[in-house]
Design a protein around this nucleic acid. Sequence first.
DNA 1: TCAGAAACTTTACGCGCGGAAATAAATTGA
DNA 2: TCAATTTATTTCCGCGCGTAAAGTTTCTGA
Lengths: 341, 341
Amino acid sequence: MAERKVQTMEDFASASGISRPTVSKYFNDPESVRATTRERIELALARFDYTPNLFAVNQNRKQTKNIGIIVPYLADPFFAEMARLIERRCIDAGYWPTLFSAHGQRQMEVNALELLRSLKPAGALIAPLGRRSDLEALHKFAADVPTVIFDSNQEIGEAFVGSDNSQSIALIVDYLCRTGEPPCFFEMPPVNPNANKRRAAYIAAMEKLGQTPQIIKVGGESWDFEKMGLEEGKRLIAERKIPTNTVLCSNDRIAIGLLAAAYQMGLRVGRGEGCAMRIAGHDDHPWAQFTCPPLTTVSQNYSAIAETSVEKLFTLITTGAKSESRQVTLFDGKLVLRASA
Amino acid sequence: MAERKVQTMEDFASASGISRPTVSKYFNDPESVRATTRERIELALARFDYTPNLFAVNQNRKQTKNIGIIVPYLADPFFAEMARLIERRCIDAGYWPTLFSAHGQRQMEVNALELLRSLKPAGALIAPLGRRSDLEALHKFAADVPTVIFDSNQEIGEAFVGSDNSQSIALIVDYLCRTGEPPCFFEMPPVNPNANKRRAAYIAAMEKLGQTPQIIKVGGESWDFEKMGLEEGKRLIAERKIPTNTVLCSNDRIAIGLLAAAYQMGLRVGRGEGCAMRIAGHDDHPWAQFTCPPLTTVSQNYSAIAETSVEKLFTLITTGAKSESRQVTLFDGKLVLRASA
DNA sequence: TCAGAAACTTTACGCGCGGAAATAAATTGA
DNA sequence: TCAATTTATTTCCGCGCGTAAAGTTTCTGA
């Protein structure tokens, strides 16, 4: 390869004996040129190994192939996994995904939006920080760029894809009530709408079963869920403030912290005899299977959420249609029975 | 803001009553224009809220402000955290970091390199996949782009920054030997040089203390360390194949799996009486403090590695000097005593 | 106050490519 | 075989900005 320097499309075109506009057409859509021409180009491509200048390409195209992905907290394996799934789908569809993380900070989310905007993206997939988000900035962004929101349903963009918290929470509440003492609810910090929705879903599910909801309240906006679960958990256990022997945590990361607290306080967790308490989570985080004991939880349908988000976005991009109403797609959770509850 | 449409620098310049070249100078370096001019520009900026077209900017600059970060596996919190630290430093220095993850796959690392190259980055910070990397592709990349390697010392690029595995492993081996039965070594899959270096360091440290090294061998190239630790661990415990009651794991993720295995097999882990085994890790992963029991480990100096990597890269970029010899910077680990060993 | 330096304006070119328009060549089908 | 159609070529312009060169204004300091 690289017989001589081929930097520009002009070079490459003359070197391969094809006109530049045709080469340009090829790079925009290989199917748009005749098969024989395509072969000649690809032959030359193998010899000279040329790639078009990304900046020159995107400067002139009305529509780039860039897709922005913004997640609130990349150190959370849920988002790492979602990002992975989404990236893959975008690449497969010939798009160029760029991943940003707000790292839990409002200003970084705003920065990411600005940076992303300067990429003139064809579309964006955003899991907002939530309460800490600059909603105005998000709205302005979504007004200019086709945007699909996932995970946390802020009223932004043309579509939302996420989990049906009512269904999933009811599922595990039912299970816990059916198999032992009804659960109290260890809520997550109210960082985003999921926190409130899950709390509400817990209350509704409990009342439907004729039980009294009992909530362990949590404040703040920290994303250090495990730490909070551990510290709060130790305090609550020490002060005997946990109202029931069964705790449903708002998410798995809280549960991981609480499991550690129980362990450190000498409480055995599980559903067998000799166990002092049951702990359940929500999300089926990648590590939920490695806790001690393994965590009973409700899984979110990662791949369905990722896939649907991307599909919705592609539809938005290709039709360009600002739909009259915001589309909301929710997926059901599934019970994942392990040893902790 | 946005009194009328200000899309181009030309628009903005005339709207703010300043010549375009001066405005251009300002955006390249605000300090390069007179204070009074700077104020006028920033005043206009507040009114019109204009940002230069990223593609047009980068097309003409010989040197972009882009910096690429490639990590092998973003779902690993070690890399998520490193990425966060590195991103922040780059942004603070006025660069534009873009994060790529190989997601454990060779082809995705190659793709990331290609994509990154098309961004004409000023430099790159790469934690290679390791054995699975396309070394030729990495070398070709590093030949064109100033590159600093971190975490996994493949012989690529102008500089490497990482941990001193000899020091850190010796530290924990010493501790374990001093406080109980000498450890056997549960190695990680040989995905990268760290795996071999840590094994060698373990052997050296044991021999120095007059002890016989005993290694639990592991094959494959999987990045699912926890899963491997769990499954292998359960098998080994069931078959009573663990040679000592103290296990030093090659990294914390293996240790997390092994802790789960011990729990599930009914073995109590810790250093007190009544404990069947001690388990130690390496890295001080973000979750090592939430395991049951909390994991005794050796910390890597995250912030020092991130900071130094970025510093080295900036030096490379600004001096442009291909140094005669490859610089290697290693940081010491610190013992983190928790309850597991 | 005035020369010299520093900063600014004006003018102009080019980066590498997308894409339009007019023309030429190759392919298709009857 | 020949027109009708498709595809390729030639030519050209423009995207938004970096940057150089030459001229003009503003600032600096003795």
